[in-house]
Each structure stands twice: as C-alpha cells, then as structure tokens.
Design a protein around this nucleic acid. Structure first.
Length: 298
DNA sequence: AAAAGTGTCAACCGCATGTCC
DNA sequence: GGGACATGCGGTTGACACTTT
C-alpha cells in the first residue's frame, strides 16, 4: 500500500495558476507568512490548491526576489562548473545563484546550457584550447581540454555540536555560529569526461589554482574530514585544520574550515561545501593545493 | 496556410528526508 | 525507536509558442 496523498486530488484545482490565485497567495503570504505549514495554508488563504502546489508557486514564481530568464555568462559558468563538479544537484547549484530557483536552473540546463556547452560556446570554459579533443565512441563521449575561468562562490557556514569557532578578529564564538562567505575562485584544470549518463565527471587528478581568498574566515577546531581518502592525513595546526593527501602521485596540502561533517558534502575545484538550501547542516571548507601553486594556506 | 516538429517552462509526481509526537 | 505527517528534491509531463517543411 502506498502512502496517502498529501491532499484530496478530487477537490483541489490543478494546472496553471490564474492571476487571482496568484494575488490571493501573495497577499496571504505577505500578511501571514507560511505559518510553518504549507498543507494548511491553502485552506486558510481560501485557495482550492494543494499545499505543495502553493509552495511551488511561491518559491518558483511569486517570491519577490525571483529573477526570471536572462541568465548571464557568469551564471552560465557557475552552472556549468558546478554541474561538472557535483552533477544534477539543482538545489545546490541554484543556492549559488541569488534569485534563481532549482526548477529554473534545471530547465535552463536541459533546454539551453547543455547544448551551449556541447557546442563550446561557454566563454569561461575554454573549450577552444589547442589540446582539446572530442571522442565519440559507443561507450562514452569524452571531451577533454584546458578549462579555465573564474566564478564567485558564496556559502554559509554554521557550527554545531561542541566546537568553538575562531572568529576573524581572534575571539571565540560558541556554536551555533553562522557566517556568510564570499570569494572568487579561479580554476584552471585539464579534462572533463562526459559519460553515458550525460554527466560530467571530474578526472581523478585535478590541477587547479586558487587565488584572492579572503583571509578572514573563521576556523573551527574539528579535525574530521571524512571526505578525504584513507591515505589522507589530517591534523590541527594553530586553529587551522590542516590536511594533506597524495592523489595520483601529486601531493595536496591545505586547510579546512570544518563546521559540521554530518551529511553529504562535495569537493569541487579545491573547495568542499555542503548543501545550504536544506538549512540543516551547511558547511564550507577551503582547500589549497601544492600541485600547481606551492604550499599555500588560507 | 496548414501540418508537423521542436523548444520552453510551469506544474505535477513520487520518493527521500526531516521533524514531531 | 517508530509511525505519521510535512517539506524538499529531481525527474517528468503537457500545454503553449515558435519554427520548419
């Protein structure tokens, strides 16, 4: 037996929203908010809609800060880069693009950006370098080349548990500690593989460079980095959580801002981050590499 | 001008996860 | 700990617009 539907489908309206319905929902939310219960909201607001439908309409269309269409080149780069790094995590990708929704990003990727990227029309990703090769076989499609560019990274870090955070000014804050961070990430590495599932995979060894990182990040004292391989080492140094590993013969060293290592996280281009959209346990880490830059730390 | 094909995107669906009791 | 319910997410659908034949 399947689970019960979230609403009585026989008595709720479906399909496109009318402007009257939009106004009713907007007015209600501006006046009362969600009240923490989307399921009960349509009844209170006088709408014959499912709660999930109201939520979706608000998040994807009616929210005041929403951006529609007109994706910029910078946004293209961010989407491509994150997609190449973490795959179809639309909510994670959308969280890096203020005013964009996961639905919007997903539609944009599926209808436009994927083709644009295949055609080599993404400026930030240098698809036109001399060493680019494209192989089309029955087993997989491979696109390789030198990819470089720069993307802004925004994230929220929050401490939990018993860890204290070292603030930028040297003081200590007990958890929960929340900070927003922003920095520019340059990337420059060879090779992407487009597999049968139409997903980009990072090569085993990434060469990348980072620059202009803000030094004023707060650091926690945790030393757990489960996302590193078993051959990685990890230690505490001067309130920095330092790590080193050896991947494919190339030594990597760096520092990590470790907030909460519960739940999924991703490493892309030298950075580790966790889904902030869930607001459950966002985390952000910074990695630096000796592969191409020498031993640098943040 | 009409039909067929293609692109776009809002909306829905079902599953996974989180939260509360 | 487990069940019920709410929320979030990614995949998919379908209506409409636009383009091509």
């Amino acid at each position: 037996m399947g689970r019960a539907p979230c609403c009585d489908k026989a008595h709720v309206k479906r399909g496109p929203w009318s402007s009257d319905e939009d106004n009713t929902l907007r007015n209600y939310l501006e006046k009362y908010g969600t009240g923490g219960n989307w399921i009960a909201l349509p009844r209170k607001a006088g709408l014959k809609r499912c709660g999930k439908s109201c939520r979706l309409r608000w998040l994807n269309y009616l929210r005041p800060d929403i951006k529609r269409g007109g994706f910029t080149e910078e946004e293209d780069n961010i989407i491509c880069f994150l997609y190449c790094s973490i795959g179809r995590r639309w909510s994670v990708i959308a969280a890096q693009l203020p005013g964009r929704t996961d639905n919007d990003v997903k539609n944009y990727w599926n209808t436009k950006l994927k083709k644009k990227l295949s055609a080599g029309k993404i400026k930030g990703l240098d698809n036109n370098s001399n060493n680019k090769t494209i192989t089309d076989s029955s087993t997989c499609n491979i696109i390789s080349g030198q990819f470089s560019g720069s993307i802004p990274i925004k994230a929220e870090a929050r401490a939990n548990g018993n860890s204290d955070c070292l603030n930028a000014n040297g003081s200590t804050t007990s958890s929960p500690y929340v900070t927003d961070m922003e920095y520019q990430q340059n990337y420059d590495y060879p090779g992407l593989i487009l597999d049968q599932l139409d997903q980009f995979l990072l090569p085993g060894l990434m060469e990348y460079s980072t620059s202009t990182a803000n030094n004023n990040y707060s650091m926690s004292s945790s030393q757990e980095v489960s996302s590193l391989s078993s051959s990685s080492s990890f230690l505490l140094e001067n309130n920095y959580a330092a790590w080193s590993s050896n991947i494919g013969g190339a030594e990597d060293k760096g520092t990590v801002l470790d907030i909460d290592f519960e739940g999924p996280r991703y490493i892309f281009n030298g950075s580790c981050f966790q889904d902030r959209s869930s607001e459950v346990a966002p985390c952000f880490g910074f990695f630096s590499s000796t592969t191409s830059l020498g031993n640098s730390t943040y």
